[in-house]
């Protein structure tokens, strides 16, 4: 049933310029920070470092386009942290492709680099070429509006200060 719901929502999202992303999401200073990566990259770890910041999801983020602006939303699809207590969304600040590391570092991604990082992490409801073409179009538009980054991080609460200092 969950797979069917995810499929239906994925189709709707795609038609409206968005998609489901394999990512955790945290609201920080009223903006959504999305942390995207494969299993073991640190998505759930970051939600545990969130402190009092609302955690939208530790597993699947809905990226939604409304009136030309992008938002990050909670979804009913969760990982180790369990269901979200914050069934809401907020304007998207950035999307970070994460890796745990022994030190902090980050790098802004060009459009092509970002899209290359996105593709394996988007919920593909179909292998049809038209579907993938639509995903490409949505990503091209999103990466023109939202700056994406690679982020290596140490699992410490200092993360938020680091992001504040580097993502102004």
């Amino acid at each position: 049933m969950a797979d069917l719901i995810r499929l239906l929502y994925a189709v709707l999202l795609l038609k409206k310029g968005g998609f489901f992303l394999h990512a955790s999401a945290v609201v920080h200073q009223e903006k959504v920070y999305v942390f995207c990566g494969s299993s073991g990259s640190g998505k759930t770890t970051i939600t545990r470092l969130a402190g009092t910041r609302p955690v939208l999801t530790d597993e699947t983020t809905a990226v939604i386009k409304k009136h030309g602006n992008y938002y990050g939303y909670a979804t009913p699809f969760y990982g180790d942290a369990g269901p979200s207590k914050n069934n809401s969304g907020a304007p998207l600040k950035t999307i970070l492709f994460i890796n745990k590391n022994h030190r902090f570092s980050f790098k802004p991604l060009k459009h092509g680099e970002a899209i290359r990082h996105f593709l394996p992490n988007i919920f593909m409801a179909s292998n049809d070429k038209q579907w993938i073409d639509r995903v490409f179009e949505n990503l091209l538009l999103l990466t023109k509006r939202i700056q994406c980054y690679n982020l290596n991080f140490r699992p410490e609460t200092k993360l938020w200060r680091y992001l504040d200092e580097h993502l102004k």
Binding site: H111, G112, R116, P120
Partner: peptide, 25 residues
């Protein structure tokens, strides 16, 4: 192959094969 989705972005192509969803930069 007409079933391959691709885009050329900043001079570099990204190919996605629908058969296996593999990405070829």
């Amino acid at each position: 192959n007409e079933s391959i989705a691709y885009r050329i972005i900043e001079g570099e192509a990204l190919l996605v094969s629908p058969a296996d969803n593999l990405i070829y930069p």
